[in-house]
């Protein structure tokens, strides 16, 4: 079991996002969608993966984000309101009878 700890401990003075120092948690959270979409550069992806392998907080954040997407995806689309549907079917009937309901 890993222990919780501050994931990204800096031993040297921070130049906030100098690449050789990796990402901070605060930077990582802004890149999650790009990471999921495979849109990070190989360099940033490596920094992301490295950080993640060391950081319990970001691992949890990523899991939360995944669950958010999953739960959103489980929402059913609403039904088309009856009124709108009736109007469209009316237009369809106009079209089938060769009238100019489509004009």
């Amino acid at each position: 079991m890993r222990k919780f700890g501050w994931p990204w401990k800096r031993t040297s003075a921070p130049a906030a996002s100098a690449p050789e120092q990796g990402l901070t948690c605060q930077e990582l959270v802004e890149l999650v969608t790009a990471y999921f979409d495979g849109a990070l550069t190989p360099f940033d992806r490596a920094r992301f993966d490295t950080h993640l392998s060391l950081c319990d907080g970001c691992t949890r954040y990523l899991a939360q984000f995944r669950q958010t997407i999953q739960l959103t995806g489980a929402l059913r689309e609403d039904d088309v309101p009856e009124e709108a549907k009736e109007r469209l079917l009316g237009a369809f009937r106009g079209w089938t009878s060769g009238g100019d309901a489509t004009k």
């Binding site: 994931p7 990204w8 401990k9 800096r10 921070p14 906030a16 605060q26 949890r60 939360q64």
Partner: peptide, 28 residues
């Protein structure tokens, strides 16, 4: 601005600047 509130992280100047100041909940 940022998608996660700045106060969830240690502020600039802190030795752990930019790291979670409190870990996100475990939804699993």
């Amino acid at each position: 601005g940022p998608t996660v509130a700045a106060d969830r992280f240690f502020p600039a100047g802190h030795p752990s600047a930019g790291a979670w100041s409190s870990i996100p909940d475990d939804w699993e």
